[in-house]
């Protein structure tokens, strides 16, 4: 479960933080599709991981570390 409106400290997400989280969630969804060509899946996964990294560092709730 993630929280789309507050960070792990209970603060409201700022506009940029909401955008980062939304981008992460969109790439996460895309990376889990099985109908995309490898070129898309692999590169989207890389993008998703980097977005997760930014969200995680900023204390934005985006799940446990190991779920690729």
């Amino acid at each position: 479960m993630t929280n789309d409106t507050k960070d792990l400290l209970g603060n409201d997400l700022s506009a940029d933080e909401r955008e980062l989280l939304e981008l992460y969630q969109r790439t996460l969804t895309l990376s889990r599709r099985d109908d995309l060509p490898p070129v898309a899946t692999a590169n989207v996964k890389q993008a998703m991981v980097l977005l997760w990294n930014a969200c995680n560092d900023l204390a934005i709730d985006c799940g446990v570390p190991d779920c690729d």
């Binding site: 991981v49 997760w52 990294n53 190991d66 690729d68």
Partner: peptide, 11 residues
């Protein structure tokens, strides 16, 4: 390490 682990490690 997974992808996310490695990204965190570099971070």
């Amino acid at each position: 390490d997974s992808r996310k682990d490695w990204s965190w490690i570099t971070d």
